[in-house]
Structures are given as C-alpha cells and as structure tokens.
Design a binder for these strands. Structure first.
Lengths: 347, 347
DNA sequence: CTGAAAGCGCTTACAG
DNA sequence: CTGAAAGCGCTTACAG
C-alpha cells in the first residue's frame, strides 16, 4: 500500500475502478456521477485520508484561492483589526491569506510584491507605506503597474498617482469633520491638532479640513498648537509636554490617530493635567486600546468590517468576471467616550 | 508578442534560442551555463518582466517555501509579537506565511489545518487553542497525527498528549519562579494569584509552582486570593474589584498574564488603590502594552526572537534532511518596571 | 454518466 | 555546457 502522503487521484481511480476524470468529478462536484460510483470513490478517498494537491489544481485552473495582504506592521492594532476582518471574509469564500509585514521597509515591500505574484495569488490587498504618500514615487508607481498586469491590487485607505488599482476607503475627511463638529458642539473653539507627518495622506487630509475650519473662523488655533509628531504613542506623549510648556492652552485637542491620543493621555496623567476636565481630547481609528486607557478615548471609527470585506469581495469577484467600480467609500462613525466633555462643565 | 502575464520558460527559451532546460538553469543557478548564453536568456526575461510560476516549480520540486501559522487571535499582542518575529525569520529563508486566525473556534482550526496541507505548506507552526489544554482531546490528537504524516508541525508553547510533533517553548515554570522570587526578595509574603483558567497549560503550570511556594511556607495566601478570571483585561478588572471587597488584602499580586495585570491596574485606578504603594503587581509575557499603561508593569518576558526563529528554522531544516530534537526550551527574563516595589517602602 | 488524452508551467535525470 | 523527454498531480474539453 502506498504512503498516505503520496496518494494521488490515479491511485484513487485505480482502486475504485474508475478513471481519474471521475475522481476529479466527485472531488469537485463538477458534473453528475452515478450515486454508486460516487460512493465507491469516496470510500477509497476516506480510506487513505486523501487530500488533493492544491498546487496541481491551481496550476490547471489558474486560480489559487489565495490572497496576499501587504501591510506595515500587524502589531499595530489598526492593521490587525482590518486584517482579522479580511481573513474571516476570505475564509468564508474559501481563500487563504499570505500575510506580509513590511515594517515600513519599501525594499521588503518590493520583495513581497514579487513573491506574491510568483505564488500566483488571486489578488493583493495593499496597505503598504508607499500608498500613503500624498506625492507618489514614480518608480514605485511603475512597479505597481507591472504587478497589476498580472495580479489585481486593491488598496485600503491608500492610493498612488497614476496607479489605477481598486481602492476601498474610509471617508476620512468626513470623519475628521465629524470630530471637529462634535468638539464645536461641546463649545470648544480653541483647538490643537496633534500628531501626523506632512506628506502622508491621512495627515494631509486632516490638516486640510482643519485649515478650512480655521479660515472660516469656526476654530481658533495657534501655530504652536499644530504639532506634527508622527503616529506613535511616544509622539503624543512628547506633543503634550510641548503644549504644556506654552503660555496658552487649547480647551481641546484633536489627535491624528488613537496612538497619539493615548500618548497625550499618558503624558497628561504624569503631568497632572486633568482629562477631560482641563482639556478634552479625541482620537481617530477606534483601536481597542482606546477603551483600556483611563479615561476611555472618544474617537472616530472606521467601518472595519465593510472595508475589509469589500476588499476581499472585489478580488473574488473580478476572478469571477464581475465588474467593480474602482473606488469605494465607507462612512466613519463618531464614538463618544470619556475623554471629551462640554466646555461649560469644564469651567 | 505574448501577454506579459502568460510568458513561460518556453517563450523565453524560444526567443533566446535555447532549450527550457537552460532557461531553468539560469533561473535556479542550478548548473553551469556559458556566460554568453546566460546573458542572452536574462535579457529576454527582463524584456518581458518574466516571473516564474511558483506553483509549477513547487509541484515538481515538492517544496513550496511556504509555512502555515495557526494561532487564536493576531489582535492579541502576545501572538502578533511572535508572529512578526517568525515572519521575519521566514522571509530571510525565502518563505511566505499563510496566517490563520482561529478565533478560538476549533472547527476553524480543523478547516485551516486541512487547507494548509492541501496547499502543500512545508510545515505548520501551531499555537492553536487545542494545544493549550492540559488534558488533550483524543479526537483532536488523532487529527493532528494524520496531518503529521504529511506535514511537519511545530508547536510554540503548547503540546498535545500522544502527538509527537516538534515543540518550542518558553520555560514558563522557571519564569514564574523568577517572578515569585523577585516578589519575595522585595519582602512580599502575602501574595494573590489572579487570572487563568484551570485546565489550560499556562495556568496549570503557574498554579503548580504557586502551590509549591505556599506549601514550603515561602508564601502566605488565602483561597479568596486565588482568582481564576481568564486571560482578558476585563478578567483582571473584575478580579481586583473582587479582591477589594475582601477584609484582608495581599501586599502583592502576581497575574497569569499581562492582560490580567493591565485590568488590575485599570480597576485600581478607578477604585483609588495606589499601585505600587499599596499593592505591587507583576504580569507575564511582556507585551508592549505593559509600557503604555501607568504605572508601567513589571513582567516576565518570553524570548520572542529565539522562540519564533527556532520554529521557522526547524521547518526549514527538516525539509533539508536535518535532524532536530523534538523539544526546545528558551529562558524567560524578568523585566522590572514601576508596578512593583519593596515592602519596606510601602509602609 | 464515464474515459482517454492533453495541458497547466516548471524541474530533473539522462545523454551527449 | 546544452537539449529532449518525462514527470509533478490535478482539470477539462472531447468523444461516446
């Protein structure tokens, strides 16, 4: 008897007294097979714990039921949240996912892109760093275009100039407005904007909206209240220290993301600044850490579920000859928690 | 001219005026090729952005350079930390990883196990829930054995009775002793043990050690100080509330893991209990959240890097006919931060 | 409802 | 150093 791990459809066919075509038919339910024959084949398969070789299947079908997912750092709760939702959607449709962490190294990004194509993934979900730059690098764009000739790409919350891939997005501009309007509704007018890096889309979008509010005199701010301190907890921590060294303080702070907001909260605690009594703060992203911190942080949430599922569905769909719009927007949601409070109550 | 995405070695061979064997040789550097011939072949490959089909290669080589990684929840910093280290080690050796989140659903665990085998992964790194039970389920063990006939499995910090797979482990017993000894060295004697679930290995190991210390009278505890409240932040939060309802309080708390410790810290803050002044607390795992919380939490760290790299190396090694011990232990490390303090200072 | 044959795109002895 | 041929393990027209 053959080794269990080298049984093929031929062995099954032999022992069941049928042709491999028939074995393939029962394997895939791709055509009618007489009930008796089917039973015989299944019996033999079970006997040997037969598992078809997906490589061979994929080679002939030109479909791998595999998706590549490129992101900077799965350790970051924002990315792990969208990843997990995507994986579940993928599982439901029978796909496996190659996860590729680039750690913001664009060379690694290129290596993974290349590998995924060679492994014949049915599509790539891309959240790599190069898709977050407001001005896209021409060489990177070129590279993406070459990939796209072979494999569909869908970017989540990112895009690249001249790269006509699928894009699935949170309406971040609208989300940021929701945050600002909420602060305004609480009576705040003197507002600081903390975190971010100029040139990165998610920062530029928010900076833009903020400027509009300032220009229309809805918000009063100062140059020193706009602190581009990156995306990390540390960045929020340093930013608050900087703010506290100033003569005038804002009554509210809007952070580029939740990590920044968490850093602000941490620094506030150390410095003895009361949140929200002395200053309100809101974040962006709604990562789960916002609820484990004290006070829990008011924030704007992505629609993680829809965002991720749409990305997966597009890949599955175009592999089944369906047609999709290139761009899809999803609404964000204001999540009110404890870090923000009305101005009246503060005084 | 052919479509760029359907170029094969035959097309390259034709245009370069050589045989496919030669194309394969330059592709793999598997045998000497005249420099001039090689140059000609490479030129044609470049012209068409040729990328070999890894499916076809894997089918004939019976090697996919792919690893499957099964874990409960990548959203949990403990798992994402080991995953990220494993992925980097894998990348260095040319492997891609299928990440499979089971969300603690053992049916999903089975589906992924099956899929990974069909996709012919070179090995599976397993941190699934079923490997964490002190008493292993016979049906699950059987399933694992069937898998192991076809694909090597290496478990990280887990094992299953009767399943002779590779095991890579933190010496958790020793790590827990380090924590206890540290507390003792600070003068603490009245200690509570919080979190965990009986029947789960990581709990049982720690419970065991704890009992030994109690029996040898190094520690004084009470029944009500041992609270099996799971592994979540919420679990730590509830546990501290429970402790605070008691007449007597311990001077120190050792938590099953960092999530529990974080929950304790959060509850303490809400209830106005001073940490570490009124009670010291230490966690286990050294996830990065321990440093963003105030006070930063003293904990025991796994050697994430070595643990993950060893798992990957074993898979790569046995696919190259190397031989490995079945079990490998790695030391843990005590990381002292702000949540613990000497008993003298407390009074 | 079933089978024989070709094809998917590589690699690998084997021969020269 | 190079080429012709078989093989990896499936699926899919095609014919009956």
């Amino acid at each position: 008897m053959k080794d269990e791990n080298s049984i093929t459809v031929y062995d099954i066919a032999d022992e069941a007294g049928v042709s491999v075509s028939t074995v393939s038919r029962v394997l895939n339910n791709s055509a009618p097979v007489k009930e008796k024959t089917r039973a015989r084949v299944i019996k033999v398969m079970d006997k040997y714990n037969f598992q078809p070789n997906a490589l061979a299947r994929s080679l002939s079908k030109k479909r791998t039921k595999t998706i590549g997912f490129i992101l900077p750092d799965i350790t970051n709760p924002f990315f792990s949240e969208v990843y997990v939702k995507a994986e579940r959607a993928a599982l439901d449709l029978g796909y496996s996912i190659f996860l590729s962490n680039t750690m913001n190294d664009s060379e690694v990004e290129s290596i993974y892109l290349k590998t995924l194509v060679e492994k014949q993934v049915d599509g790539i979900i891309f959240m790599g760093g190069r898709a977050n730059e407001t001005r896209t690098d021409a060489a990177f764009a070129e590279e993406m275009k070459v990939i796209m000739k072979k494999t569909p790409i869908v970017m989540i919350n990112g895009e690249m100039e001249g790269v006509d891939c699928y894009r699935v997005k949170t309406d971040e501009a609208d989300g940021f407005r929701k945050g600002l309007n909420y602060l305004l509704s609480l009576g705040h007018k003197e507002i600081a904007l903390v975190g971010g890096i100029k040139g990165i889309t998610s920062t530029d979008i928010k900076l833009d909206i903020f400027s509009q509010y300032v220009e229309s005199a809805q918000i009063e701010t100062k140059e020193e209240w706009i602190i581009e301190s990156g995306y990390s907890i540390e960045g929020g921590y340093e930013a608050l220290k900087q703010l506290l060294s100033l003569a005038d303080l804002p009554t509210a702070i809007i952070a580029i993301n939740d990590f920044i907001a968490i850093g602000v909260v941490k620094a506030a605690k150390e410095m003895g600044l009361q949140i929200p009594q002395e200053v309100s703060i809101i974040g962006f992203d709604n990562i789960y850490l916002t609820t484990i911190v004290l006070p829990a942080i008011t924030t704007i949430s992505h629609n993680y579920q829809e965002l991720a599922a749409k990305a997966v569905n597009i890949i599955d769909g175009i592999n089944n000859n369906q047609v999709y719009e290139k761009e899809h927007f999803f609404d964000s949601e204001l999540i009110i928690r404890e870090s923000s409070i009305g101005l009246m109550k503060m005084e």
